[in-house]
Amino acid sequence: MAHATNGKRIAIVTGSASGLGRELAVRLTERGWFVAGVDFDAERQATLVDELTADSYRAFVGDVSDEAFVKASVAEIAGLGHIDLLINNAGQPSFKVPTAYEGADVDRCLKGLKGMILWSVETLKADGETDLKIANVMSTAATRGNANESVYCAAKWGEKGYTQSLKAAYKGSSVKIVGVYPGGIDTDFYRDSHDYVSEEKQHTFMDPGELADVILFNLVNDANLTVSDILIERNYR
């Protein structure tokens, strides 16, 4: 067990191969963590594996909402040692006028919510519900309604409800639940929606690396406290 991770603390990061998830995973390894990174993109996972060392990062390739994949992955990760941190970051956008949404758009947005639940449940069971921090990365879309984001907002509001319920269930225990609500981020997240967010506007959004630093500053520290909600708005210009 100690050989596999060299005694490092273990974190699971979903959506780890690109965007904010990638920045979180890389920065955790730089802070001495072992990261189990989860993503459906095998090519991007392979690139990240090449950049990081075997004793700091292990790639799991699959759909975060596939229950069998989640169960098998968490079992393997738990075999390496106690899981200290789960960051539920994976999610997919869908930005359309209200009448343009179809069932496939709903299914796409709900993958993040389903994955958040499945990874949380399996990690809690694997850890015996002790000394675990779960950070659910959502969006400011979970705090308000936005035009042309009706289904996306609905999914994020569901994620917020799940996060708040976990907080209530584990209040006073060694399980800590953190809600993370970032505004617009300059990543590939909008690549299929340039009719909604232009590339020019996207590049005014928050830098994912800087955002990851702010999140981890609040999430991973030695202080005897827990920042329970992290709301980060971008500077408008």
Rank of each mutant, 00 (worst) to 15 (best):
K167I: 04
G103Q: 11
A126V: 07
R44W: 02
A147S: 14
T226N: 14
T123G: 07
R31D: 07
L86I: 05
M1H: 11
A75L: 09
K8F: 01
D84G: 05
A141N: 10
N146L: 14
L225H: 13
E210A: 15
R191C: 04
E23Y: 08
L20R: 08
E23F: 08
S73T: 15
L124Q: 11
G161I: 12
E67I: 03
N88K: 06
D84W: 04
A17H: 02
E122A: 15
K8V: 00
I77H: 09
D207I: 14
G19R: 02
S165N: 10
V220G: 09
G21N: 03
G81K: 10
R31A: 11
V180R: 08
A212V: 13
K167C: 05
M138I: 15
G91V: 00
N89M: 04
R108L: 11
P98I: 15
V61A: 02
I12P: 07
P182E: 08
S56W: 04
R58W: 04
F95N: 08
W119P: 09
S56V: 13
L166C: 05
D192K: 14
S173M: 07
W33H: 02
D195T: 12
S198G: 11
L124R: 11
G37I: 00
A141Q: 02
I10F: 06
M206H: 13
G115P: 03
S65A: 15
K125Q: 15
D127H: 09
R44L: 14
V61K: 01
S150R: 01
